[in-house]
Every structure is written in C-alpha cells, then in structure tokens.
C-alpha cells in the first residue's frame, strides 16, 4: 500500500527531555491511523513537527513521496496537509460561511486582490455551503463563529480543513471536550469520511479509536512502542500495561 505521510526516525528534545524519540510511522492511502498514548507521551509535539510548527532535531517527514522536512508550516499546508487543532483555532469574528470560504480562497496562499469581495463569489459560496453541510453545520452558515457551541466549533474545524481538499488530515483530538452525543456525531462523521481521506487521528476516546481506526500506534515517552491493527492492539500485553491499564 502506498504511504501518503511517513515519519522517519523523527527526534525532538527539549533540553535533556526526549519528547520525540526516534519515531517512525506512516499513514497509508485511505486508512485511519490512530495515535494513542498517555498524557505527556509527546503526541502534540509530534503533530507540531508534522505540521511544521516545530522544527525537528533529526529525521524526516515525507508527504506524498516528497521530503517536506525543511518546509515551513504554510508551505506544508499548501501541499495539502490539513489539520484540526487540539484546542480549536478559529477566526471567531467571521461567520461560519465566511470562515469556510476563506479555505479554498487561501489554497494558493491567499490573494492580494484588494477589491473583490470573496463573500459575493457564488462559486465559493456554493462550495463552502457544501462542506458546511458535509460537516453537519447546515443551516448555521450565518452564525458567528464566536456564538457556536464547542462541538459545533469542532465540526467547523473539520469543514475548514475539508474545504481545502486536503491529501491527508491530521486530527488532534477531534472529540476532546465533547459531550457523549456530540462525540457520537463526530465519530459518525469521520466514518463517512473514512476511505476518502487518509487520516492521522490522535484521540483519547478508546471507543472512538477502536471504531474508526484501521491501524493504531502507541506512543509512550516519545517512542512508538507498538504499531498494529486494532485487534493486535487489544491483545498486546505491553500496550495494556502502558496504556489501557492492567486488569
């Protein structure tokens, strides 16, 4: 199977603390690859390294057979690396529609057109409305982002990422802080998207991981201690002791 995103021997230390310790893993075309691990395992650091917010000490990140290690975050984004953030990062003053319009509009890095108003571009509007509907926010397109509920903001993050037609999605705890009902809706949504976009899913909710993931990697103290299918993870003793807890 082809690899869309692959991390090879990635390292990052803060002083003496090895936060990312020789991490090698890959996301294959069409799969959901879940990354799990206890708090402080280095998941967020790893994502920052993948997305280019944090430079790596060693190792490489390959995206669609291209070494993107030296590229800055906005260049990686332009290549089609889409993501959601652990704590939502949204423009609160925009309406939902405006925010999603911004996505395809920025595909090439954003326009310097000082006069055309993208809100009046029928093509962009239709496209944005499509993704808003897809993310389950239909009917709320004129709501200001600041007035959205927490779960809706999560959905909007997804719509914003999808509207850019990403080649891979890096989702940093998309269910974090959600109520049970919202969680279920998000899982359903991700299930619908499964197969269309390769995803690297960082998630604490084990039910969600077991429902969604094709493969799972377990990160402990910056090291990937295990990669395998969902069934293999369930049975692996080391994972159980490190993460799932000894019964």
């Amino acid at each position: 199977m082809t690899e869309v995103l692959s991390l090879r021997h990635l390292r990052k230390s803060f002083g003496a603390l090895k936060v990312t310790d020789d991490v090698t893993l890959e996301v294959r075309a069409g799969e959901i690859h879940a990354l799990i691990g206890p708090n402080g395992a280095g998941k967020s650091t790893l994502i920052a390294q993948i997305c280019g917010e944090l430079p790596s000490d060693a190792g490489t990140v390959h995206f669609q057979d291209r070494d993107i290690t030296p590229l800055s975050a906005f260049k990686r984004a332009r290549l089609g690396l889409g993501r959601s953030f652990q704590t939502t990062q949204l423009c609160l003053e925009f309406t939902v529609l405006e925010h999603v319009i911004l996505s395809p509009d920025c595909m090439g890095g954003g326009s310097f057109n000082l006069f055309a108003n993208p809100r009046n571009d029928a093509g962009l509007r239709d496209e944005a409305l499509h993704w808003i509907g897809k993310a389950g926010l239909g009917g709320r397109e004129n709501r200001q982002v600041a007035n959205l509920a927490h779960g809706e903001r999560r959905q909007l993050e997804l719509a914003v990422a999808l509207a850019r037609k990403p080649h891979v999605l890096v989702l940093d705890e998309p269910m974090a802080g959600m109520g049970a009902e919202e969680s279920t809706r998000m899982v359903t949504l991700l299930q619908e998207l499964k197969g269309q976009y390769p995803m690297l899913l960082v998630e604490h909710d084990m039910d969600a991981v077991f429902t969604l993931a094709d493969r799972v990697s377990v990160l402990v103290y910056g090291r990937v201690i295990f990669t395998g299918t969902v069934d293999q993870v369930r049975q692996d003793a080391e994972v159980r002791s490190a993460y799932l807890g000894d019964d």
Binding site: E98, N117, P118
Partner: peptide, 22 residues
C-alpha cells in the same frame, strides 16, 4: 476584499491562517 479577509484571519487566529497556507 480577499486580501482583507486573510489579513483579518491572521489577527483572529494566526495558527489557523497558516494552516490554510497563508
């Protein structure tokens, strides 16, 4: 304008705007 939207987006959430390729 298109420009202004990006410019304001950068103020509201720089990380988001960068991840949109800006």
């Amino acid at each position: 304008s298109r420009f202004g939207m990006v410019f304001q987006g950068l103020r509201q959430s720089e990380r988001r705007a960068i991840n949109l390729g800006v």
